[in-house]
Design a binder for these strands. Sequence first.
DNA 1: AAAGCGTGGAG
DNA 2: TCTCCAAGCTT
Length: 335
Amino acid sequence: MLAWYDVHARDLPWRAPPGAPFADPYRVWLSEIMLQQTNVATVRPKFEHFTARWPDFASLAAADEAELMTAWAGLGYYARARNLVACARTVVERHGGAFPGNEDELRALPGIGAYTAAAIASIAFGERAVVVDGNVERVVSRLFAIDEPLPGARAAIRAATDSITPETRAGDFAQAMMDLGSSICTPRNPKCLVCPLSDRCAAFAHGQPDAYPVKPARTARPERFGTIFWAERDGKVLLVRRPPRGLLGGMRALPTGPWSESPPGLADPPLTAGWRMLDTSVVHVFTHFRLQLSLAVARVREHSNAGEWWPVGDIESAGLPTVFAKAAAEVRRAT
DNA sequence: AAAGCGTGGAG
DNA sequence: TCTCCAAGCTT
């Protein structure tokens, strides 16, 4: 794997520059957080923006949280952004502005779990750590033909990964496994004919590489309904800040009523006005439910401090999560 | 410990 | 259009 990696490693902005033994821990950490459940192509421009704006722990720890949440908008899983600031502040306040170099102390920091701690310890600090992400899970379950379904198979997968992790260059080994998983040992139609591991792969020998890992059946995604309230006054629209935890927590948003099993109509508007329902709607799919949003609009005269009034023509810069950006675009299209 | 938590792209 | 998926963590 290391020989393969030396030839085929992807060129990514958070990896060590040529000649350097290890990458910058700050950049490794930031990239790892952004990459959680998120594609490289999506992360790349966000990573460039973040590192230009906040190049190190000190600047991120001092960051204005509202600006940081705005910068994260569109990436999803917003708890990552909240934990990013919390982690930077902990590093500055309790670790003298630099990461601890070992897995256990990394694991204790906000937003850093088993995978990310192992990745940082090995990639940025040269420690031997057993790094298991979704790619490694797939590669290893095929290599050893582990046929127990997930998530029960995780212990066996971790043990198998441990057995093949080298004492030195564990970080390069992990990145090699992840590159292999993303380019060759893919979920569907794996390219076994060009895989450096095929001659040792049990699943390939059995002729069924894409049968691994075995996954549990998916449950249906429920449907919910809601209403977006678009209050406009002097070319500005009313925006609110969502509560700090939970779905889209801490993000700037359009006001909504309850999200329920059936369309809630004009329940719970942000202010009293002559609300009018548009005859279009917006559908947005979250991880665990599908949301159909009705759109209510009103012209407002009097001032209200129910939130902040944002220039409609500049709505793209408000840092709205995608569901609200879609709703805003639909309101502007339909009115 | 199962459920909650986003989004965009590929097939 | 629909399903699956992407460098998981927290409670």
